[in-house]
């Protein structure tokens, strides 16, 4: 177990530069799909849970789980109401969520864009 003591030297870095940080909440396939689908609605528009479920072809349980996680970080807003005495849940992307998706896409683009020389440098 002397290996622990020999860790003082920095290990060679496999990557030359640090990767831009990707939002871990959005950077999961299912939640990314939910966020993108909600972002196609205009700001202020809301969609019912069943229509969103149908749109994404996800199971209700799966969608609920991911919506809860997105709600925990204030990316989506769930509004529970009644229509003709039937409970209805409306889902919408918050401004925070919309901005988070924009930032996430910008980070992806930075990751995919090869570094270029500074202009005029």
């Amino acid at each position: 177990m002397s290996a622990i003591g020999s860790m003082s030297k920095p290990l060679p870095q496999p990557l030359p530069e640090p990767l831009p940080e990707l939002d871990p909440v959005i950077h999961a396939q299912a939640r990314l799909r939910v966020t993108v689908a909600l972002a196609t609605l205009a700001t202020g528009d809301q969609i019912t849970f069943p229509r969103l479920q149908q749109l994404l072809e996800m199971s209700a349980g799966n969608l609920s789980t991911h919506l809860r996680k997105l709600e925990d970080v204030d990316y989506v807003q769930l509004t529970k109401t009644h229509r003709r005495r039937i409970p209805v849940t409306y889902v919408s992307l918050t401004l925070t969520g919309r901005r988070a998706l924009e930032d996430y896409i910008a980070a992806l683009r930075r990751l995919l864009t090869p570094p270029t020389d500074q202009p005029g440098g």
């Binding site: 396939q29 799909r33 196609t40 149908q54 992806l108």
Partner: peptide, 25 residues
């Protein structure tokens, strides 16, 4: 569905999902 995505895969998924959502909505 939650295997880690590469940046390219993520962008492709966003484009597909956006197109699908717009088509269905």
């Amino acid at each position: 569905e939650d295997h880690p995505l590469s940046a390219g895969e993520s962008l492709a998924l966003i484009e597909r999902q956006q197109a699908a959502a717009q088509r269905r909505l």
